[in-house]
């Protein structure tokens, strides 16, 4: 099955991004595809490569970058939500890209299921 994922909350404050990551890994392990992960609202903060959690904690941003590199997942950050929050190309972590909300609607159209992680 082709899954789309929408993440509406930022890292650490909220577990949404962690749950989405675990979901994506489990889906891939079962042979499913992740069509795209779309980051909206405070979810755009997941793309900030300046994020630096303590050594003994997981690095949410790096986890996404690595998973995307391993499986060729499209990580898209909403441009309007990103600009509001100071997320720009120069601080994007590897494999993330900034694009429009149309990419979220298109994910809904193309994927078999759109799974939303948020509050």
């Amino acid at each position: 099955m082709k899954f789309g994922i929408l993440i509406n909350e930022g890292p650490y404050q909220h577990q949404a991004s962690d749950s989405a990551y675990q979901f994506a890994k489990a889906a891939l392990a079962k042979g499913h595809q992740i069509y795209r992960v779309f980051f909206y609202h405070d979810g755009v903060n997941n793309a900030n490569r300046l994020t630096e959690p303590p050594q003994d904690d997981r690095n949410v941003t790096q986890q996404w970058s690595q998973l995307a590199a391993e499986h060729g997942i499209d990580l898209v950050v909403c441009v309007a939500a990103a600009l509001r929050r100071g997320i720009k190309d120069e601080i994007l972590a590897p494999r993330f890209r900034i694009s429009g909300l149309g990419q979220l609607v298109e994910t809904g159209i193309q994927a078999d299921r759109l799974v939303v992680f948020g509050d």
């Binding site: 909206y40 609202h41 909300l101 149309g102 979220l104 609607v105 809904g108 159209i109």
Partner: peptide, 19 residues
């Protein structure tokens, strides 16, 4: 919170996609 305002932005885009 900003949820309502940003939700409305998605709604308007989805209309542009004729959904």
């Amino acid at each position: 919170t900003i949820y309502a305002l940003e939700a409305l932005e998605v709604v308007l885009i989805s209309a542009a996609f004729d959904q």
